[in-house]
């Protein structure tokens, strides 16, 4: 598993992450190694404090490990400077958050194209693409609405569209259904599953909902900064 695998989207090797909280040190990840092949949907579960958020932050290039190596899409990103990390996130990664995290002043379409606008691409080229994507996700005619005019499920669909627009190599989802009722949650999950499968996209989803975790191909369990379980999911949703 620790061997560099040409087919792996993610190669985590011996990663340690230590946080300083006041005067005490917290070892959030304790020498974790993990390899995720391209196209796999990986669910990560664990109780609060298990290290799953830290893991997601590292995979999402939001943070760098204290030690160990972290290779995503063939790039060793653990020593990237801040600006290169930003660019990497912009170009290669897609994010879905629990609280949707849409910018309140932008319309749905604008929220979707935001990462690409940040990359300096032209709005005129992006907008038709975003509108098509939103239609595909059942949000026809909602593109000009602002987040406060959308329901929770709609907002999360917009977030999914945003994550997928730039055709990332890796999609990271942090409790994507945590703020939705169960019916809407499972609809959003199904949407993510279908959209990523069609694109052969690698997905890492952190959740504490066992039902949500079953959507994936594989389930990794974390506790106290260590992997305590790594299994294939039996029945795909």
């Amino acid at each position: 598993m620790s061997n560099a695998n040409a087919n792996a989207m993610i190669e985590v090797s011996n990663v340690v992450k230590v946080y300083k909280r006041g005067k005490t040190e917290v070892r959030a990840l304790n020498g974790v190694s993990l390899s995720v092949p391209r196209g796999q949907f990986l669910s990560v579960m664990g109780s609060s404090g298990s290290g799953k958020s830290t893991m997601l932050n590292l995979l999402g290039a939001l943070d760098v490990p204290t030690s160990g190596t972290l290779r995503i899409d063939g790039k060793e990103i653990s020593r990237f400077p801040d600006d290169e990390l930003s660019r990497f996130r912009r170009d290669r990664l897609g994010f879905i958050f629990q609280f949707f995290n849409l910018l309140p002043t932008l319309t749905a379409v604008e929220n979707v194209i935001l990462p690409e606008l940040l990359a300096g691409k032209s709005r005129e080229l992006l907008e038709p693409k975003a509108i098509a994507l939103l239609e595909q996700f059942g949000l026809k005619g909602r593109g000009a609405h602002r987040p406060d005019e959308l329901s929770g499920g709609e907002m999360q669909r917009v977030a999914v569209a945003r994550a997928l627009l730039s055709e990332p190599a890796l999609l990271l989802a942090d409790e994507p259904t945590g703020n939705l009722d169960s019916k809407t949650g499972s609809e959003v999950l199904r949407l993510i599953r279908e959209a990523t499968r069609a694109r052969q996209l690698t997905v890492v989803m952190v959740t504490h909902d066992p039902k949500a975790a079953e959507v994936g191909d594989r389930l990794v369990r974390l506790a106290d900064g260590n992997i305590i379980g790594d299994d294939a999911v039996q029945a795909a949703a």
Partner: peptide, 16 residues
């Protein structure tokens, strides 16, 4: 602050 975090997460660099 959280919005800034979000922007940064989706690829905004410090310059943005």
């Amino acid at each position: 602050t959280r919005e800034i975090g979000l922007l940064r997460a989706v690829g905004a660099d410090r310059g943005h």
